[in-house]
Simulated scan of single mutants.
Amino acid sequence: MRLSVLDQSPISKGQTAEEALQQTIQLAVHTEQLGYHRYWVAEHHNTNGLAGSSPEILIGQIAASTRRLRVGSGGVLLPQYSPLKVAETFRVLEAFHPERIDLGVGRSPGGGKRTRLALTDGMEKPLHSFSRQVKELQQFLHGDIPKGHEYYGVSARPATKTVPSMWVLGLSERGAKHAALYGTGFTMGHFISPDKGEEAVRTYRERFRPSKSLKMPQVNVCVFVVCADTQEEAERLAASQDLWLLEVEKGLETRIASVEEASARTYTEKEIEKIRSNRRRCIIGDPHHVKRELDLLAEKYGTEEFLVITNIYDFNKKKRSYELLAELM
């Protein structure tokens, strides 16, 4: 089994954004030493609890601080941007760090309507353009804009000997079809919605078309994991993540509360049921339990690679979780 990391640069209560971003760098260095394969960073806007609003800058910082890790985006919110600009940004990253850069893109609008309009400078950009944008992004990366295209003659610079590997992030068959059609890797967001994962991955493999960058289908799966030395300790630590997920889904606080605050909270029956439902997106437990659950997920999705996301309050406990996972593999 191959382990990788997805990091949203979460901010714990009492912490600054500057500290959270420095912890992202520290965790990348730490997980590289532990043998992790990739380190991807997310993109979020207009939120006080997630510091990673510019994955491109974080990727450069992480890649410069590490030597072996593949570093990438999980993912760039492509509907808000120009495929040419994204291609050029990642070509620059590739020039600095050849054969280490992953370009993951998603269809998410990136926030509410006002946030999205602010990102697009007031332009109404339809989400249904995503398929066309994925195609053009790949064409710009590989210098394949065809004759007759309105952008023929425009090249993404700088010219580089290699290009970033491209991934499409998805939650259902829709995202899987985009990845399959254009021959990119596919990342299944089990940590967001596990309900349609098997169908999505099956569709991707059945419809996959080889491309210049990828000859065979490639799948990884992202899942929340909290691992501790004992089951009881893992459950205790996960309380902060449980509360965080509740607050995020309500559009409330997006900073991570302490275990003490989460444990002292009185939950309604509806919130308790929601926590139970959210646990389907997570694996929480001691090493033996986590290994067993990851093996089951690997069989379910037919993949050997997991992107692990751990959003708990205590940074040292987070590092310990990643250490215990590494010992399993």
Rank of each mutant, 00 (worst) to 15 (best):
L324H: 05
R205T: 10
V225H: 12
Y36A: 03
P217G: 01
G148Y: 04
H178P: 01
A28K: 06
H128F: 13
S9W: 04
H142K: 13
A87S: 02
V92G: 01
E249M: 10
D121Q: 14
V290P: 02
L58G: 04
L325D: 00
S12I: 15
G52H: 11
R255L: 05
K317W: 09
G185V: 01
L294A: 04
S65F: 15
K147R: 15
E232R: 06
S193R: 10
D121G: 12
I57Y: 06
V134F: 00
K250T: 08
E206N: 14
V308G: 05
Y182G: 04
T16F: 01
H289I: 09
E249A: 08
D7C: 12
Q22F: 06
A179L: 06
G175Q: 00
G111V: 15
G285A: 04
M123V: 15
V201A: 03
E32S: 00
G14M: 02
N46V: 10
E99G: 12
E94F: 02
E249T: 08
G52N: 13
G251Y: 01
F208Y: 13
R2S: 15
L27P: 05
S12Y: 07
I256N: 01
K291P: 07
E233K: 11
K215G: 14
S82K: 03
S4V: 08
A51H: 09
W167Q: 01
P126H: 08
E304V: 09
S193G: 11
S54A: 15
I62D: 10
T115M: 00
L84D: 06
L58D: 07
F186D: 04
E199M: 15
V154I: 11
V219Q: 04
A298V: 01
E198P: 03
A228S: 14
R2G: 06
D242F: 09
V5A: 04
L93R: 12
P83N: 09
R67Q: 14
F208P: 11
Y182D: 05
Y204E: 05
F140E: 01
Y151Q: 10
T162C: 09
Y322H: 14
F315D: 00
P164I: 02
G185E: 00
I312Q: 05
L34D: 07
V223S: 08
V29T: 10
Q133K: 07
L117Q: 11
T187K: 00
E32T: 06
A179F: 04
F306Y: 06
H288Q: 15
T162A: 07
S263E: 12
I25F: 07
G110W: 06
E32V: 00
R91D: 08
R207S: 13
A42M: 04
R205P: 13
L84A: 07
Y313Q: 03
H190T: 00
P164T: 01
L325V: 04
E232L: 14
P98F: 09
S65G: 08
E273W: 11
S9Y: 08
W167G: 00
A42G: 07
R91G: 05
A42D: 13
D195A: 15
V219D: 07
E253F: 11
A17F: 05
T160V: 06
